[in-house]
């Protein structure tokens, strides 16, 4: 561990110094870094079974190819990110195969069932946009060199996922009728999911270790604004209604409902007339969504048996 104090490390980072090895880190830096990387790795990994569930309803061979390619990318992103964690002294195998479902740190959105092709493309347009927003920030701002470099390829591949979502959203909305209605239904539950993805607003929580160590550069609200400024115009251009608009006076996007609100996962429905506290939101996240266990188990299922077989055991 570093001989530098936390303060000295922060000053060095402030001057633009990139951290390359664990020797340069303080305990605090390393802890915050592991925390943020674990969220990313778990999100990438859990997007795979979630997208796969929806991709099974791909309407043609060509669309199946593009959906599976997205899934393969996500597995690649998970792989890169768990490797970064291993380089920090974590056990990659344990992280993927040893943890209990509730220990995974992916956002609540990837604990939900994605059931149709339409839900897949809206997820690509909204959730992958959240991913790009969250990963574009460290790519620009992070003080951890290996992470920054790992994001070059990841961010490029994410652009294809995004395009996959946006182009299909437009095509389906242009078709009108049932296609557009289904997009609207998916947007109704997935848009607020995306809003919540960015966490607590800044007036409740501003100073975090992640910002102080410059692991990332932007606050939750700043990131949420970037996401809204992409997703709201996209939705509007498709003729899809989302509960947010650009406010001329404030020169920013504002939500048309009191944030945060209650969610009923069994109906995939937000209760816009039931505002809740952030403690209640954390409670819901901690309880995990309906597909958390299903997705984690689908990844872990065959690992132990297979390893035993491979090693000649029974």
């Amino acid at each position: 561990m570093a001989t530098l104090s936390d303060e000295a490390l922060k000053q060095k980072i402030e001057k633009g110094h990139l951290i390359e090895t664990t020797e340069e880190m303080t305990e605090g830096y390393k802890k915050a870094l592991i925390q943020i990387l674990l969220v990313q790795a778990d999100t990438e990994l859990m997007s795979a079974p979630s997208y796969y569930m929806a991709a099974r309803s791909a309407p043609s061979m060509n669309t199946r190819l593009s959906a599976y390619a997205v899934i393969q990318d996500e597995l690649g992103h998970a792989h890169i990110t768990y490797q970064l964690l291993e380089d920090l002294g974590m056990d990659k195998e344990y992280l993927i195969y040893g943890r209990k479902p509730h220990e995974f740190k992916n956002p609540y959105g990837f604990d939900q069932p994605l059931e149709t092709w339409v839900e897949l493309v809206v997820a690509n347009a909204y959730f992958d946009r959240a991913g790009i927003t969250l990963l574009g920030d460290p790519f620009e701002n992070t003080s951890y060199g290996p992470w920054k470099r790992s994001l070059v390829k990841i961010d490029k591949e994410e652009l294809f996922h995004l395009r996959h979502g946006e182009v299909w959203m437009k095509r389906l909305c242009e078709a009108g009728g049932q296609a557009k209605e289904e997009i609207q239904r998916a947007a109704d539950w997935m848009f607020p999911m995306g809003v919540e993805w960015f966490g607590m607003p800044d007036h409740l929580k501003r100073h975090t270790a992640q910002l102080e160590y410059k692991l990332k550069g932007k606050t939750n609200d700043e990131l949420r604004q970037i996401w809204l400024s992409a997703v709201v115009p996209l939705s509007e251009s498709c003729g899809i209604h989302v509960p947010a608009h650009f406010d001329e006076a404030q020169q920013e996007y504002v939500l048309d409902y009191e944030f945060p609100v209650d969610y009923d996962p069994s109906q995939k429905r937000w209760k816009f007339d039931s505002p809740v506290s952030w403690d209640q939101v954390f409670e819901r996240w901690k309880k995990r969504g309906p597909y958390n266990e299903i997705y984690v188990k689908s990844i872990q299922k065959h690992y132990k048996d297979f390893m035993a077989m491979l090693n000649g055991g029974n």
């Binding site: 060509n62 669309t63 593009s66 390619a69 395009r163 095509r171």
Partner: peptide, 11 residues
Amino acid sequence: TACPAIDFIFY
């Protein structure tokens, strides 16, 4: 052969 973007390219 498994070009992921085939549909987009045609479109």
